[in-house]
Write a protein that binds this DNA or RNA. Structure first.
Lengths: 211, 211
DNA sequence: ACAGGCGGAATGAACATTCACTCCATAGAA
DNA sequence: TTCTATGGAGTGAATGTTCATTCCGCCTGT
């Protein structure tokens, strides 16, 4: 019975893992080859399951990817808010969020590239457009970065630029750098990262005396 | 004979256009749907030619895309150097190049996204890695942005950051903004563009008194 | 014994590439 | 000038492959 219960647990665990394996494999492969570039058969092999098994967990390939996106994107946003303190000064909040994006990308390269891929796909673009024009987004608010910028502009700390431009100045370099780092094109030490994040602040900051 | 020569010219012209039509269609469709997302049949239809005709001009799909990339990427670099004056001050050169990238993207959205797609594909990543590790690139030097940064650092005008970080700070926001603009997510007026480019300078600039 | 999860062969659709054919401008014969 | 032969561009149906999805036995836990 002892052995038996262990076996049962192991099996249940493994059974529960099957879905996870499929998801992990999908994230990894799609982040590298894109949606149309990764066949179900490849996902099945990477996950160590039969192709048919995938359809026990997900209706079809589209659903698989969409569900994964929702989950990963949600986790990502949650991660960003970890230890985030809305009472800190603007600059600290800004750096905390930017660093969060960077660290998430470095720790979760597949998820990071997966999100990127999705946002740049026709589906992702449509989703973003809908979120902007009718603000009835299912996930609610967007990045708290918006709030930081709004508060910063009220204090005349942040440049008077459209929100989209500020976001581009803050996130653009980070995405760029993380992608190059993931691709193995560069190697970043912590000092460089800190200096680069500070430079992002310089970009959005109003005052010359910004340190 | 008059009529005859006109006909001949027209035919030659149209024949010459066929290759161009194929290339244009490929850029447009791949920029939107990606390599694996655009079948040859779709390219043929968009180009107004038979599917077989494409293979009269290009060996296969890979070759088609690779040749287009070389051409488009070359045109892009050439465009950047248009009216570029290496004797101008560092900041002016920096802004000229950044503005060039931005304007190219706005004028050639399909080409811009096509280049992006390519660089983010496994093939493009490999190509960039090879270009970095053995500097025997076929196209020779990279963006003159590198030279601007090197010269700027010598004058203590530019932050002491690795080249990759500086490039990310300069180009990241522009790529980000152009993509959003192409997707119709934002509308940019010239004042905003100028202010954003100036902000990119703030990011890479050493001195607080940067204007 | 049996219900249900599972793998992977089976299926039909979609794809990249090929090929046999059409069409037409030109060259040369009459 | 007119007729005909020729070659090469252009086509799209045919081919073989790969894909997403389905289906059917097997195997395992109960």
């Amino acid at each position: 019975m002892n052995i038996h219960s262990i076996e049962t647990t192991a099996i249940l665990t493994d059974s529960g893992n099957k879905r996870v394996h499929i998801i992990d494999a999908t994230i990894k492969l799609i982040s590298e080859y894109g949606f149309h570039g990764t066949p179900i058969s490849m996902i099945a092999q990477e996950a160590g399951v039969g192709a048919g098994t995938i359809y026990r967990y997900f209706k079809d390939k589209d659903t698989l990817v969409l569900e994964i996106f929702k989950q990963v994107n949600g986790d990502f946003k949650k991660t960003l808010l970890h230890e985030y303190d809305a009472d800190q000064p603007i600059r600290d909040r800004f750096l905390h969020l930017c660093r969060g994006i960077f660290q998430y990308g470095m720790k979760n390269p597949y998820e990071f590239k997966f999100i990127e891929q999705f946002y740049n796909s026709p589906y992702g673009t449509t989703l973003r457009r809908d979120n902007i024009f009718c603000n009835c987004g299912d996930t609610g608010q967007d990045l708290p970065l918006e709030q930081v910028f709004a508060a910063g502009q009220a204090q005349q700390l942040i440049k008077e630029l459209p929100l989209a431009a500020l976001i581009a100045l803050a996130i653009g370099p980070i995405v760029f750098l993380v992608k190059d780092s993931i691709a193995g094109l560069i190697q970043l030490d912590e000092a460089t990262v800190n200096a680069t994040l500070a430079a992002c602040w310089d970009a959005v900051c109003q005052m010359p005396a910004n340190k």
